[in-house]
């Protein structure tokens, strides 16, 4: 009985966590906490994808959003003027809450794993002939959707150009290494022979 209800229980816990964490993203006063809650939201949503049998999307969500976007947000937040000394003072005070969050995440992972073990056939079927959904995506991504794939590649190039336009500054007086110049140095250019008279030194 309990085993059959496991997917449903997992879903409700994950969904509630996702919504609760999303609420905390906007409710918490500290921007760093907001980003941590955001990561929690992404993890919970990834769990929901696993429940639906879309394990590729779940991994993508973790890699792209938790791995890249959230870290980027963290950098931006760090640039903001946050008083970290004041924040650290409350570390012990917040430890129980952090522990609870960690436990919830752990429980989620266990439940998701258990649910998929108990009922491996559950979830959305992407293809009739038993290809996994990663294969199914791969089959159409570079064929049917090749145009969009290339166009999105161009958008990425545009984003790079734009980021460089807006941030790169040419500075004068920067000492850069010129390797070919270093290799092309000869003994004549680099060594100066000085005839020093005894007792006088080279000081001027």
């Amino acid at each position: 009985m309990f085993v059959e209800m496991l997917p449903a229980i997992a879903f409700y816990i994950l969904a509630a966590t996702a919504v609760g964490m999303a609420f905390m993203v906007i409710a918490s006063r500290n921007p760093v906490h907001s980003v941590v809650f955001l990561i929690g939201t992404f993890l919970a949503s990834a769990g929901l994808f696993v429940l639906m049998g879309a394990e590729f999307l779940a991994l993508l969500l973790i890699m792209v959003y938790v791995g890249a976007v959230a870290v980027l947000f963290m950098f931006v937040v760090m640039m903001l003027d946050v008083d970290f000394v004041e924040m650290k003072q409350g570390f012990l005070q917040y430890l129980p809450i952090g522990g609870v969050v960690a436990c919830i995440l752990l429980a989620e992972m266990i439940l998701v794993g258990a649910a998929s073990l108990v009922n491996p056939g559950a979830g959305v079927k992407f293809a009739e002939d038993g290809t996994s959904n990663i294969e199914a995506i791969g089959n159409v991504l570079y064929t049917e959707y090749a145009f969009f794939f290339e166009a999105v590649g161009l958008i990425l190039l545009l984003a790079m150009v734009g980021a460089i336009v807006l941030t790169l500054r040419k500075r004068d007086g920067v000492k850069t290494q010129n390797i070919s110049e270093q290799i092309a140095r000869t003994r004549e250019g680099g060594v100066e022979l000085v005839d020093i008279k005894p007792g006088e030194g080279i000081g001027s």
């Binding site: 969009f148 166009a151 999105v152 161009l154 958008i155 545009l158 984003a159 734009g162």
Partner: peptide, 10 residues
């Protein structure tokens, strides 16, 4: 959407 985003980003 792809076209719209490309022009908007630029």
């Amino acid at each position: 959407y792809v076209g719209l985003e490309m022009q908007a980003l630029a």
